[in-house]
């Protein structure tokens, strides 16, 4: 039996067949967690944000029309969840430096845990040093399988503009990566 498409599942959720959200959760919990973790390097926070995304999907399920791609809609929500969290977090700016140091520490520990390849470890560190908007566009590109048109829908710009953003981000990543390589 062919698996139901994301859109078909989400339309069922919209019709109050809430169990189908479980299937969507199983499909996307990892990529979503990856997206958030790539953004903030905080596993606990990322889990909270994934939970928030699904909470919003449930709350606003009546808004899903099924015309666009579910994944695009979901990452749109994910992006809003991330922004909302850090807008609130700006109030705690004082703590942020400590958090950052903490995060860097845990980042390295985690890196050794899951990143055997030294090259990839370096790349991960380079990603962390990129400005947030550039990191975001690269992560979206990764998790949206380079579908620039859909990423454009998430970011609210044209496909061409997304390509330019990806180009610039990759340029910056390359530069940071080379810088890190020098110090290794």
């Amino acid at each position: 039996m062919e698996a139901l498409t994301d859109n078909a599942l989400m339309l069922k959720v919209k019709d109050n067949d809430l169990d189908k959200l479980g299937l969507l959760f199983e499909r996307y919990k990892r990529p979503l967690f990856g997206f958030f973790y790539g953004m903030n390097k905080d596993a606990e926070l990322s889990e909270d944000l994934v939970q928030n995304v699904f909470l919003r999907i449930l709350k606003y399920r009546y808004l899903f029309r099924g015309e666009g791609d579910f994944r695009t809609w979901m990452y749109h929500i994910a992006r809003n969840v991330n922004h909302d969290h850090f807008r609130k977090d700006k109030l705690k700016a004082k703590d942020s430096l400590e958090n950052w140091q903490e995060r860097l520490g845990t980042d390295e520990n985690r890196s050794t845990e899951y990143q055997k390849d030294e090259e990839l470890q370096l790349l991960s560190m380079a990603m962390d040093r990129l400005p947030e908007d550039k990191r975001e566009v690269l992560l979206l590109s990764k998790f949206q399988d380079k579908k620039y048109k859909e990423i454009g829908e998430i970011l609210g710009c044209s496909e061409g503009a997304v390509k330019v953003k990806v180009f610039r981000a990759l340029q910056d990543l390359k530069a940071v990566y080379r810088e890190l390589e020098k110090h290794m």
């Binding site: 809430l18 169990d19 959200l21 479980g22 959760f25 919990k29 990892r30 967690f33 990856g34 973790y37 790539g38 596993a43 990322s46 889990e47 994934v50 939970q51 699904f54 909470l55 449930l58 985690r110 845990e113 899951y114 990143q115 090259e119 990839l120 790349l123 991960s124 990603m127 690269l138 590109s141 990764k142 990806v166 990759l170 990543l173 390359k174 990566y177």
Partner: peptide, 26 residues
């Protein structure tokens, strides 16, 4: 090449705690 390496870069998986909280919420 850089983009491809980025795609290969694995990110950690969420813990079982996420499943618990999600299914409780559902």
């Amino acid at each position: 090449a850089l983009d491809e390496r980025l795609d290969r870069m694995t990110l950690p998986a969420p813990s079982m705690q996420l499943n618990d909280t999600f299914y409780h919420m559902l």
